[in-house]
Structures are given as C-alpha cells and as structure tokens.
Write a protein that binds this DNA or RNA. Structure first.
Lengths: 179, 179
DNA sequence: TCTCGACCTGTCTAAATAGGAATGTCAGGA
DNA sequence: TCCTGACATTCCTATTTAGACAGGTCGAGA
C-alpha cells in the first residue's frame, strides 16, 4: 500500500488539497503510481484519521488543505530508508511474449515491432518532457528528473530488445524453412 | 484481467491441473504475472463455466485436468494480436526516487546503491538460469528465453541507471558544499 | 442572465490481488 | 506402523484498484 506513502511524499513538499494531489497523480506520477479520485480522497481521510496528516485550512468551496504531520514525516522516512522495495513486475506486455508461439511467426514479429514503435514514441515524449522541464533545482524536480531518465533508459532498452527479439524469430523461421 | 489469458496460454501447450499451473506461476511466470492458489482455482472454475476450457480427466485424488477449448484458443489469439497492452508501470522502487529529497543525500545514495546491488544479483540469477535452461526448441522455451533476455537487459539497465543516479547526487552535494 | 468549464469532495459497486485455513489422498521412509 | 511431505482442491476475509456516479461552488464570457 504505497499510495499512502505517495501522498505523504507529495505533502512533504508542502500543503495541498486532494484535488491538487490528483493532478500530480495524473501527470508527474502517472507512469509510476497511478491513482484515481476515489483512492486519493479515501486515503487522505484515512491518513487524517490516523493523524499522519492534518487539515490546515478549509477554503470557501469546501476545499480542504492537508499538511503532513510529524508522525507522517517519520513514517515517510521509515518507508524510504527501511522498507524493502517489492519487485512486483506484473507485465501483460511480457506475458504475451511467452505465448507468441500460439500465433503465426509473422504476427509474433508484428507484435514486437509494435512494441518497439510504442517504446520509441514514449522515448520521444519523455525526451521532449525532459527538455521542457524547467531547470529549477528543488528536490522534487531534481529527483523527478532522475526518474525521468529511468523512463528514457527503460524505453530505449525495450525498443532494442524488441528489435533483437524480432531478429531472433526471423532466424528461427529461416532455420525452420530449411529441410 | 490477464490472469485468464495466462491460464489459456499455459493450457494451449497441453492439458494440466490447477496444481500444475500453480507451479508454473510460482517459477516461470513469477516475475511476469504472479498468481496465488485462490486466484488460479477460482479463475479455472470461471473459465470452465464460460466454456473456454474443459475438464478432460478427473484423477484419483480429486485432481481435475483442464484442456483448452476452441473458443479459448480463439480468445487467446484475439488477446495476443488485437488487444492493446496496458502500460501500467506501478513501481514503488521508482516512487521512492521522487521523494529521496526527504532524507539525507547519504541515505539517498545508499538507497540507489542497494538498488544497483539488487539488480546485479538478479542479473546473476537470470544468467545462471539462462545457462541452466535446456536448449529444447519448443515454442514455450523459445519465447520464454526471449522474456528471460528481457529480464537480463532490464536489470542491467537498472544497475547502470542507479550507478549514474548515485553519481548525480554526489555531484549535487559537491556543488552545494561550495560557497 | 445563463451556461460552460474549472474547481472540489464524496460514495458506490465490481473486480483483482494477497494470504491463509481447512480438508483430504497417497507414497515412502524411520 | 506412524509420520512426513508431495499432491490437490476449496473457501474465507481483507485490501487494493478501476471506474462510475452524484453533488456542489464559482468565475468568465456569450
């Protein structure tokens, strides 16, 4: 349940409302930890009940501004330094690869080619984002850029792998055609 | 809901029981699509109800052997060729990176170093597995090896990135120390 | 004035995931 | 003979996620 820690992490940078946080989830964190409205508002309520965050202001339109409490900051630090990351790795993209033997080799290659193209597109998008992001040197921006670089390298890796895998299938087809 | 398709994909290679399939989920697919007992048995029941798989034998100890039906095979092919992969990407490892500004730079570097070591360990394990896997040329083994290569490249990428990120933090610290 | 879009919070259900408990058969070794 | 471990299924609860739905304020512009 890292949604809790994602909220604490964002609030550590300054007070915000559920709506504010939601926008961050849909933009900066969309590729790292997506979250929906219902999740964010519900979890903020639970965090407030648990005393990890506090409502510091109520705006005119019902807006509630939350700030991280000391206990919340302690919990965040604990998670950052002492809780072992889970290597979940659930990927339907990769799952499909296992079963590509069920379709024609041509279709398998087409799947990998689409994968390579998708990765190339994502790479271009991230590169554009990387240029667009201002060079402010606050912590969130600095570490956000490290994560962005991860995305660039991940997509490059995926693109190269898909190309390589496609060639492997071609070779295998060529061998199979021989008597 | 790709658990369904994972089961269809495995059954496409031949009939099997829930217990057999479970072992595969815990070994070959553990890093791609983990699944628990309760999920596998429940989903097999639903697949049978939907007519995508059939019970072809009942063993002495209550063992039920399932085989894929034609409709199941069609559904599998449809998923492989026509359903767009979801790029979910939910990673608590990467989420932490965003918030590393909340702890001392030394702790942030330590986190990245642990990450690099974990990746290096996974790389070694996969390389050993790659050597151990027999060179049989059935489809599942061939495409499984492609997925294994993906894992090798992913871990190499992560290791290199973590090293790079650690150096970036060092540089930033050095700059901050200057007056 | 009226409407539209941005703002803002909340509830509801369904599904997927995690993990364990209960139950039982059967083969092989101490 | 008794115990252990592999085999094998089913049921259970709790949490997380996905996606709608419903409600409300306010400012700007047609």
């Amino acid at each position: 349940m890292s949604l809790r820690h994602a909220l604490l992490g964002l609030l550590a940078a300054g007070p915000a409302s559920g709506y504010d946080l939601l926008k961050i989830f849909n933009v900066s964190l969309a590729n790292v930890w997506p979250a929906t409205q219902s999740q964010v508002y519900a979890e903020l309520g639970r965090l407030a009940d648990a005393g990890l965050v506090e409502v510091v202001a109520e705006g005119p339109r019902g807006r509630k501004e939350y700030a991280i409490a000391d206990t919340g900051r302690a919990e965040l630090r604990h998670w950052l330094t002492e809780v072992a990351p889970t290597r979940s790795g659930r990927s339907d993209t990769l799952l499909r690869v296992f079963f590509l033997g069920q379709v024609e080799p041509g279709q398998a290659r087409a799947y990998l080619r689409r994968l390579a193209e998708t990765a190339a597109g994502a790479e271009r998008d991230l590169a554009a984002l990387s240029d667009a992001v201002s060079a402010e040197e606050d912590d969130l921006a600095f570490y956000g850029r490290l994560a962005l670089e991860w995305g660039l390298r991940f997509n490059a890796m995926q693109r190269e792998w898909a190309d390589w895998a496609e060639r492997r299938i071609e070779e295998r087809e060529a061998v199979a055609r021989r008597p």
